[in-house]
């Protein structure tokens, strides 16, 4: 791997939470990924940048269990894993904030936070929801991340775009997830709301979780990330520590004006 040599990430200490090695995936004739290798570290924000169709989302979907790679391995916490569906990845502690947020408007904030992970009392199909415990837990999740949601009992329908994003991130951050994947989390948000979501991302990082961020916003990537991986035409062409690079270099790497 040529990119491996270029990866300054290998110089930092600590084991990566995710290590992708030589991942390849083809959809019919389209080679979506070609020998992609990258790493994510806990307590860091890792950004994946690249043009449309460069393969960013595809790599992320392989990690979150939506796609299965043709070849290559993904190491999670040091051991190779192969998720067959997103549910397995979720159980392992890999949460994804979907671009459409995957919230149910007619349910309350706490119901959304606990969707398909409801707390029940009693056994089997006779288990009754412990609404009080979930409301309390939701309140804790929300206040821990200092999310500005009016009340956990309010319906999501009444929330603003930024508040919805916050709820979706909150859900991904709860339940002791170790890696939170975010696909363009601030694309649809205003300036103030973007700032609040960025605060949230930094807070996740400070809690020692890994955050994988896909963003088209270079300023945001430079502001938030510790490590940037650049993708072009299905390959991961470069990896840089954010502190050691700048917007110009990243743009050059994305367009191919500068070889890695």
């Amino acid at each position: 791997m040529t990119t491996q040599a270029n990866s300054p990430a290998s110089s930092t200490t600590g084991t990566p939470i995710i290590e992708v090695r030589d991942l390849s995936l083809a959809f019919g004739n389209v080679q979506a990924l070609k020998d992609v290798s990258l790493q994510l570290r806990p307590g860091e924000v890792t950004a994946v940048v690249g043009d449309n169709g460069a393969g960013k989302s595809t790599v992320v979907r392989c990690i979150s269990g939506i796609h299965k790679a043709d070849s290559g391995v993904i190491h999670y916490n040091g051991s190779p894993v192969s998720f067959h569906n997103p549910e397995q990845a979720r159980e392992a502690g890999i949460e994804t904030v979907h671009q459409n947020l995957a919230l149910v408007d007619d349910l309350t904030v706490w119901q959304n936070l606990y969707l398909n992970r409801e707390i029940v009392r009693g056994v089997g199909p006779l288990g009754l929801l412990d609404r009080r415990a979930m409301r309390k837990g939701a309140q804790e999740m929300v206040s821990t991340l200092a999310v500005n949601v009016p009340a956990v009992s309010s319906r999501v329908r009444r929330l603003s775009g930024g508040q919805r994003q916050a709820v979706a991130i909150c859900r991904a951050a709860g339940f002791s997830s170790k890696l939170v994947i975010m696909d363009e989390p601030t694309a649809a948000l205003g300036v103030q709301e973007t700032a609040r979501v960025e605060e949230l991302i930094i807070r996740l990082k400070s809690e020692g979780r890994a955050v994988l961020l896909i963003s088209h916003n270079f300023a945001q990537v430079l502001r938030l990330s510790d490590q940037v991986w650049v993708m072009r035409a299905g390959r991961c062409v470069a990896g840089r520590r954010t502190a050691e690079t700048d917007g110009e270099e990243i743009v050059a790497l994305i367009t191919g004006a500068k070889a890695a």
Binding site: Y114, R117, I119, E140, M141, L145, G174, F175, S176, S206
Partner: peptide, 8 residues
């Protein structure tokens, strides 16, 4: 359900 540790 485990709540995350409070941030700094």
């Amino acid at each position: 359900q485990q709540t995350p540790t409070p941030p700094a």
